[in-house]
Amino acid sequence: MTTPLIEIKNLHASVDGQEILKGLDLTINAGEVHSIMGPNGSGKSTLANVLAGKEDYEVTDGSVVFHGKDLLDMDASERACEGLFLAFQYPVEIPGVSGMQFLRAAINAKREHHGLEELDAINVMKLFREKAKLVELDLDMLKRSVNEGFSGGEKKRNEIFQMAVLEPTFSVLDETDSGLDIDALRIVADGVNTMRDPERAFLVITHYQRLLNYIVPDFVHVLVDGRIVHSGGKELALELEDKGYAWVDDEAPAAAAK
């Protein structure tokens, strides 16, 4: 029997006193790609932020076990060092901090956490060069301040590049497809697909089915009002595209009753 990579049980979470996640269960094994779809306001981004440990989100009930450890007990940086990565929907700008400086700090924080020596500048560059190819990223971009003046597509590619460099075991992609044209979408998807392997898992959060043509998931879950109301294989995404979320909304009470 495989131990799950991450096991979410009865997760309840609130923002500003308002409950958004209302008892969410989800188990993901290594090697799997799961997708969460759902209408606006269903709690998709909240789930991403709660898993990553953003402070404004209060977990009121439930548990999350990651690599056999209590995830909710760790702060955001510990979660990251333990192998959790969030590709942000809206990556922020950090003026005056170059992409290289930023990533080098991240790499070495993670290495320190695992008792490894710092990676020197030469090896960092080598790693950057290798990973930049994956997402067709111009290395000169890393000399600029993090995300400053980047186009929407550049920001998302930069997120996937960071993911490739940091090699997380569990990556959450929060609406990475939003605002991407078809070429950028393909590049981003290729980056993710290259990283798929038996040790890693992905949770792809999206509003549209389109991305899932490129990153083909093993499981699709439908999130409505803070709960997963429907789970299925990749064909579920197509069905949703066809019938719209109203269809699952109608089904929801039945699903919840099961």
Binding site: S77, R79, C81, V92, G96, A105, A109
Partner: peptide, 25 residues
């Protein structure tokens, strides 16, 4: 900004110093 840094594994203290150093560049 802090969350972006900590999510990448950088401790909060190091994140503050990174952001402030950028501010002073």
């Amino acid at each position: 900004q802090l969350f972006y840094c900590t999510q990448r594994g950088i401790s909060e203290e190091d994140a503050v110093s990174l952001i402030v150093n950028g501010f002073c560049k």
